[in-house]
Amino acid sequence: MTATEILFWLLSALALFSAVMVLISKNPVHSVLWLIVVFFSISGHYILLNAQFLAIVNLIVYAGAIMVLFLFVIMLMNLNSNTEPQRNSLVKLAGVVAGCLLLTVMVSAVRSAGEISKSQAVMNEGDIGLIQNIGKVLFTDYVVPFEISSVLFLSAMVGAVVIGKKE
């Protein structure tokens, strides 16, 4: 077992454990912190796949900006485990069973797909994830969607201000 495989299994176990902890934490602040752990482990997966640009963007945008925004809103509302609304246990059981059934369908579909059984995701090599190549593709082939996304950000900003301001 090489170091890459050990890292893959460690990061996968960390991601799954933290994702489960996001669900079962009573305190919303703890959920946010566990979700940050999930994002860090997914960034580790990106680095293993040699997609360094996405790893850093994932850390800066998700673990940095978005999660700080979530924490800010939770602390603004003063939510804690005492005020946490709970569904009744029958609905919880139904939700877990539905999720497990969806997982069963997906896993059996993957296991029965013959074409991908020999496909490998190449690790630790290939330079398509480096900033140089991503930037070249982004500013030649995808320059129009890139500019449109700036309009999207502007409208999102205007929308957030309009929704959030007092009457």
């Binding site: 994702a19 669900l23 919303p28 709970q86 609905v91 877990v96 539905a98 997982l103």
Partner: peptide, 12 residues
Amino acid sequence: CIGVVGVLIRRN
């Protein structure tokens, strides 16, 4: 699927 279960079982 963990995300789907979370959407189904939490109320916050």
